[in-house]
Amino acid sequence: MDVDLIFKIAGIAIVVSVLHSVIKQAGKEEYAWLITLTGVVVVLTMVTKLIWDFFSTIRVMFQLP
């Protein structure tokens, strides 16, 4: 668990955003959509682990079942 993860997500988001606009300008609409989807999936896998850790922490803290 470190702060790098957040900046990694931010970096991926910016890169995907730039790629999306470049490819859209080039007229390849379907590829642009595909890149956005890939970026979302990659970030989602990273975020899922963080959320799982976070909820585990909360569960221990408040003794939730």
């Binding site: 668990m1 993860l5 997500i9 988001a13 979302v40 970030v43 975020v47 963080l50 959320i51």
Partner: peptide, 10 residues
């Protein structure tokens, strides 16, 4: 949305 989720959890 995902970045704000990650930042909030972190």
């Amino acid at each position: 949305v995902m970045l704000s989720l990650a930042a909030g959890a972190f």
